[in-house]
């Protein structure tokens, strides 16, 4: 009485057969990324996954993953696999094929048992199809999520690299800004600078913008925010390296640098900073 079998009975009764067929698909030459994963590891993953899948089908006969509890383990297992694959460098299509290649063995199985009862065959086919599609989407979602995390982390690392805060003397720190300032980057500069101010007990901070090509109203606002935040903590900021064009743009835009100490060059700023903390730069005998 094969045709009366539930989907669970069908899957669990032929679990090994499905696995064998599925592994054949995935381990086929040209499909297996032997450079990224060993056949044994992949086989193990497939075996584990199928076990979780059959368990979930048993718990949840609706087969549409609507019962989150029943599908929890399948989801988390699949999420983990997809994330790992994304990190290892699998292509998105390869990651989704992990699930989609399971369609063939299961469809073949359904075909061989359900031909008598067309209605049941169609309904089972639809269920399995929907289920695997949803799982396929889940792999994609997890894959992308993992990739996005990587991108975000790299962006953060790049931002950190591009904004070094240096201590030039007792109580004096400086941050030379190079390149375009957007709000994410300014945020980073601000946080780094303020943390460094606390760490080295700096009372004066120089923000050198010689390497910043353009300063628009938004960038100016970001700079002002940094200066205000430093002041709240008890440190003074000097902005140096304002090129003539930038000074002109600022005036045209109506941005006022009132209440903010500005110096034309980094050297001037350093001289000013030293005088503020009680040092004087003087010319001595050259050692050359």
């Amino acid at each position: 009485m094969e045709k009366a079998k539930t989907l669970y009975a069908l899957l669990s009764g032929h679990q090994n057969e499905i696995l064998r067929q599925w592994q054949k698909e995935q381990l086929a030459p040209g499909v297996l990324r032997s450079d990224l994963i060993s056949p044994d590891e992949l086989k193990q993953q497939m075996e584990d996954f199928l076990r979780y899948l059959v368990e979930a089908v048993k718990k949840d006969e609706t087969e549409d993953m609507s019962s989150l509890e029943a599908w929890k383990e399948v989801r988390s297992f699949l999420t983990e696999i997809s994330k790992t694959q994304a990190k290892k460098g699998f292509l998105p299509s390869e990651t989704s094929m992990f699930i989609f290649s399971l369609k063939k063995p299961i469809f073949q199985l359904l075909q061989s048992y359900d031909t008598e009862d067309l209605e049941k065959f169609a309904s089972d086919l639809w269920k399995v199809n929907t289920l695997l599609d949803q799982l396929g989407l889940l792999t994609m979602e997890s894959y992308l999520k993992s990739k996005e995390e990587i991108i975000r982390r790299q962006q953060e690392e790049m931002l950190e690299l591009s904004t070094p805060v240096v201590k030039i003397w007792e109580q004096v720190v400086a941050v030379p800004l190079i390149g375009t300032l957007d709000s994410a980057r300014t945020q980073m500069v601000m946080e780094n600078l303020l943390q460094e101010i606390v760490r080295v007990s700096a009372t004066i901070a120089i923000i050198d913008i010689t390497g910043v090509p353009t300063v628009d109203t938004l960038v100016a606002q970001h700079l002002f925010k940094t200066v205000s935040a430093a002041r709240l903590m008890g440190a003074e900021c000097v902005i140096s390296g304002i090129r003539p064009q930038i000074a002109q743009t600022m005036v045209h835009l109506g941005v006022s640098f009132q209440d903010i100490t500005t110096k034309a060059t980094l050297a001037e700023a350093i001289k000013y900073a030293f005088s503020r903390v009680g040092y004087r730069i003087s010319k001595g005998e050259s050692t050359k």
């Binding site: 303020l194 606390v198 205000s228 935040a229 903590m233 008890g234």
Partner: peptide, 20 residues
């Protein structure tokens, strides 16, 4: 004199619009 404000507190205050 207000002393010892933490960086994250200062950043938040500026964003909030408080510059004391």
């Amino acid at each position: 004199v207000v002393v010892g404000m933490q960086p994250e507190v200062a950043i938040t205050m500026v964003e909030l619009g408080l510059s004391l």
